[in-house]
Write a protein that binds this DNA or RNA. Structure first.
Lengths: 151, 151
DNA sequence: CACGGTGAGTTCCCTTACGGAACTCACGAT
DNA sequence: ATCGTGAGTTCCGTAAGGGAACTCACCGTG
């Protein structure tokens, strides 16, 4: 856990980070997304210490991002699968990956491509306004207080 | 706590986190986005320690996310403004905020609303495939090796 | 039956980063 | 001459991360 607790802040970004922003947590969720679901596999793939991995998995399960599911009895073996909440968070990771492709990949190009199953194409993801359908960038948006803003 | 360096990993998510994933960095970028650009204002708004804030600002400037801009000479005073790279990262933060609105806001509702200047509406952001225009969710996408993938 | 292997953690120690407060520095204003 | 301000820097105690070793429950083989 980060030293400062973000979960009580009046900010959806801060609260998201409190759930999934600790070091390694986004990478654990990415792995769970692409089918790496077991403790030892996660540890090997990420190179994270077993200690921290155990802590993160516990936190992500308690936060409802992952479900700890028994996949073999006698001896009890568990795997971690994304919940709906966790799945929706992968949207954030896809946009982050796309930003990383553009700004950190260098000449070698992006390490992975994302293919849209429905149309079969390697896809770029666009952020569009659900009201008018136009592409939205951060400079097109202004923020204003919402109902959950404290006085 | 020594932290593992994500910047050399062959993963655009990990490399994005190496740039902007440290504790507080996303919140600093959010603040820079909404117009909180000066050291003391950032410190007051976030409640981060001045020590960590100074480290994060240095790192974000070196990474090209923020520009340290002189806004008053004699005595030299500086503010931090988003670069294009930083601005594009705000896309990630907007999607993250939307996820947080949905999954962490509770009954009070979202603390801030995002209004699309072009159409004037409070907007939900949709992720759409640039090829076919359909909405994309994480389960519609499969990943495959790209040019930057190591052997 | 003893032995080794496997998956899923837990424990221990060491180092480093964070939090918080105090301090500095260069100026401008009173 | 002193106070205030913005932008940091320094110092110290504590807690979190890294990494290796250890545990525990079971299974398969000789």
């Amino acid at each position: 856990m980060q030293r400062t607790d973000f979960s009580e802040m009046t900010c959806s970004i801060a609260r998201s980070l409190a759930v999934a922003g600790e070091p390694w947590s986004p990478l654990i969720l990415r792995d769970a997304w692409v089918g790496i679901n077991r403790f030892d596999d996660l540890q090997r793939d990420l190179g994270v210490s077993r200690k921290v991995l155990a802590e993160r998995l516990k936190h992500l399960v308690e936060a409802g991002m992952l479900e700890r599911r028994l996949y073999a009895e006698r001896p009890g073996r568990y795997e971690y699968v994304l919940t709906r909440k966790g799945f929706e968070f992968v949207d954030v990771l896809m946009v982050m990956a796309q930003w990383g492709d553009r700004w950190t990949a260098g000449d070698a190009g992006p390490p992975v491509l994302r293919r849209h199953r429905a149309c079969g194409e390697v896809t770029q993801i666009e952020l569009r306004c659900a009201e008018c359908g136009e592409i939205v960038t951060s400079s097109d948006v202004e923020v204003e207080p919402g109902p959950g803003m404290a006085a």
